[in-house]
C-alpha cells in the first residue's frame, strides 16, 4: 500500500466516476422531471457503444462515432418517451415494466445485430499512451474522460442555472404540476430532458466502449451504478449526480482493489447507510 497505489487508484476511481457522470446525470434529470424509473437507461449506454462501433468501422472517426451514437440513441429515447411512456404518466409500476420490456428488446436486438462477441472501440492516436508525472504514469484516455465529463458538467450547470430553459427544468423538478400551471410546457420539457438523458448515456457508451469494451450484458452491468449514483446524490440534482458519480467511482475502484470479494458490497452498503440517514440522498429534496 504505497502512496503510488493510492494515487493511481484515486485517479482510476476519478476517471470511472467521470464516465458514470455521463451515464447518470441524464438519468437523474429524467427522474427529477418525470419521476420515471428508467430501466432502459443502461441499454442506451450499450446501444450507444454498438452504434459508435459500427460508425468507427465505417468511417474510422472516433468523433463521428461519439456524435452519431449519441444522436441515434437520443432519437430512440424520443420515440420511447413520445409513443409509449407518455401514455403512462403517473403509473409508477407501469412505467417500470414498460422500460424493462424495452431493455429486454434492446438487449436481444443488439445480440441479433452485433452478435455475442465483445469488441473494443479503437482509441484515436493522440489519446493513446500515458501521461507521466515524475515516477507515476496515467493513461491519457482516462484523463480524456475526466476532461469530457468536466466539460459536460460545466455545460449542464450553465444550461440549468443560467438559462430560461434551465429555470423551467428546475421548476418542473420541484413541482411539475405547478410548473404546468404557470404555463411551462412540461410534456415538451420532459421529452427534451429524456432525449438529453439518452444522448448523454449513449455518449458515455461510446467513450466508455473504448476502455470497458462493448459487449452483451453491458446494459445491465452499468445500470445499477447509474442508480446508485442517482440515489446517493439525490434525484434530479446535478451537483448530486457529480458528487454521487465521484463517490461511486472511488468506492467501486477501491472496493475492487482492496476487498475483491466484497466489492459490490462496499459500493452498495454505503449507499444503504446514506439512505438510512438521508432518504432523499445527499442533495435531494423531498
Amino acid at each position: 500500500m504505497t502512496a503510488e497505489f493510492w494515487i493511481i487508484q484515486t485517479f482510476n476511481g476519478l476517471s470511472y466516476g467521470a464516465l458514470l457522470f455521463l451515464l447518470a446525470s441524464g438519468l437523474s434529470l429524467i427522474f427529477g422531471v418525470m419521476r420515471i424509473v428508467n430501466l432502459a437507461h443502461g441499454s442506451y449506454f450499450m446501444l450507444g457503444g454498438y452504434v459508435g462501433l459500427s460508425v468507427v468501422w465505417r468511417t474510422g472517426s472516433f468523433a463521428a462515432a461519439v456524435l452519431v451514437g449519441a444522436l441515434a440513441i437520443a432519437l430512440i429515447g424520443i420515440a420511447m418517451e413520445r409513443l409509449f411512456l407518455r401514455r403512462l404518466s403517473g403509473q409508477v409500476l407501469g412505467q417500470v415494466l414498460m422500460t424493462i420490456g424495452f431493455a429486454l428488446i434492446f438487449q436481444d436486438a443488439a445480440l441479433l445485430i452485433w452478435g455475442g462477441d465483445p469488441y473494443t472501440i479503437p482509441v484515436p492516436g493522440p489519446l493513446r499512451g500515458v501521461l507521466r508525472a515524475g515516477a507515476l504514469s496515467f493513461p491519457t484516455y482516462r484523463a480524456f474522460i475526466v476532461v469530457v465529463a468536466a466539460v459536460v458538467a460545466t455545460l449542464l450547470w450553465l444550461a440549468l442555472d443560467r438559462t430560461r430553459v434551465g429555470a423551467r427544468i428546475r421548476a418542473a423538478v420541484d413541482d411539475a404540476e405547478m410548473a404546468q400551471g404557470v404555463g411551462i410546457n412540461v410534456p415538451l420539457l420532459s421529452l427534451a430532458v429524456f432525449a438529453l438523458g439518452a444522448f448523454l448515456a449513449a455518449m458515455g457508451g461510446v467513450i466508455g466502449g473504448a476502455f470497458l469494451g462493448v459487449y452483451p450484458g453491458a446494459d445491465f452491468e452499468v445500470l445499477p451504478y447509474a442508480f446508485v449514483v442517482v440515489i446517493v446524490g439525490g434525484l434530479g440534482s446535478l451537483p448530486g449526480a457529480m458528487v454521487g458519480s465521484l463517490l461511486v467511482g472511488l468506492l467501486d475502484n477501491f472496493g475492487k482493489a482492496l476487498f475483491p470479494e466484497l466489492s459490490y458490497f462496499t459500493l452498495f452498503a454505503p449507499m444503504a447507510l446514506i439512505l438510512a440517514l438521508r432518504p432523499t440522498g445527499l442533495f435531494g429534496r423531498a
Binding site: 420515471i36 424509473v37 442508480f227 440515489i231 458490497f265 459500493l267 452498495f268 444503504a272 439512505l275
Partner: peptide, 26 residues
C-alpha cells in the same frame, strides 16, 4: 421510510446488494 418511486429505487438498490454478494463473494 420511502414511498412511490423512491421505494422502487431503494428496493432495487438493496436487491443489488444481495446480487453483488452472490456474484463476488466467491
Amino acid at each position: 421510510r420511502a414511498a412511490g418511486t423512491y421505494f422502487l429505487m431503494i428496493t432495487l438498490a438493496l436487491g443489488m446488494v444481495v446480487w453483488g454478494l452472490a456474484f463476488r463473494w466467491v
